[in-house]
């Protein structure tokens, strides 16, 4: 499924009653089965944009081409699991139609098989993040929205989870939008990277990565990341 968004303006009301414009002329498209990364300064409006895409916030002007029957998978900045349901139940509640075999395979791929009967309170952050990812994949989503899914994990663990995400996407490509502030992460996973401006956010740069995800060498990934850093840096000094 293709994801196509054109938000002309999105205002939020601050606590003091003033309206802040968070998004302006925020346009982007993700081709079916592709992964686009969104990188941009902190607080520029990335989460707000994902919430508009997900239908969690409908109070904006503009247009989002996403049929209402589209199945969404979303991983929030925090894992957001139901604390009173086991790992298994958290996944099955979100994906009642998933087969046992599919869930077994998913939990195996994310190395959660030993934790099915655990409650979220018994999991480390890394494990909870994996469960959130498993839940998003279990619904066999048409569109996947990931909001800094690996933030505040140590570097090694984040790397491991990125590899697992790449493997899942390799097996079943999903149209994905990944918000990240880590240019290495974007360079490693994305087909296209959109660089965002300061608030109000809009796309100021687009980088298409020609090399396929699985074929990117470590050196190529760090070259791409360096290029992204440069573009982000220059956009900052302009703004």
């Amino acid at each position: 499924m293709r994801l196509d968004a054109d938000i002309t303006s999105k205002l939020v009301r601050a606590a003091n009653g003033a309206d802040i414009e968070v998004l302006r002329d925020m346009r982007l498209a993700v081709e079916p089965g592709r992964l686009a990364a969104l990188v941009g300064p902190s607080g520029c409006g990335k989460t707000t944009f994902l919430r508009c895409l997900a239908g969690l916030d409908t109070n904006f002007s503009g247009r989002i081409a996403l049929p209402s029957e589209a199945r969404l998978g979303m991983v929030f900045q925090e894992p957001r699991l139901l604390p009173w349901r086991t790992v298994d139940d958290n996944i099955r509640l979100a994906a009642p139609d998933a087969t046992d075999a599919a869930i077994d395979q998913l939990l195996g791929a994310l190395r959660l098989s030993g934790h099915r009967k655990h409650y979220p309170g018994e999991l480390s952050l890394g494990l909870a993040r994996r469960v959130a990812l498993a839940r998003a994949f279990a619904v066999e989503p048409d569109v996947l929205l990931l909001d800094e899914p690996f933030v505040s994990l140590d570097a090694l663990l984040a790397q491991e989870l990125r590899r697992e995400l790449a493997a899942l996407l390799g097996r079943r490509p999903v149209t994905t939008l990944l918000v990240t502030h880590d240019t290495m992460e974007a360079a490693q996973l994305a087909d296209t990277v959109y660089v965002l401006s300061e608030r109000p956010a809009h796309v100021i740069d687009q980088v298409d990565i020609a090399i396929r995800r699985i074929e990117r060498s470590a050196a190529e990934v760090s070259d791409i990341a360096e290029d992204l850093d440069r573009r982000l840096g220059s956009s900052h000094s302009h703004a």
């Binding site: 239908g55 969404l72 957001r80």
Partner: peptide, 8 residues
């Protein structure tokens, strides 16, 4: 969690 319920 309400939002999770809405998404899924």
């Amino acid at each position: 969690l309400d939002e999770v319920a809405q998404i899924y």
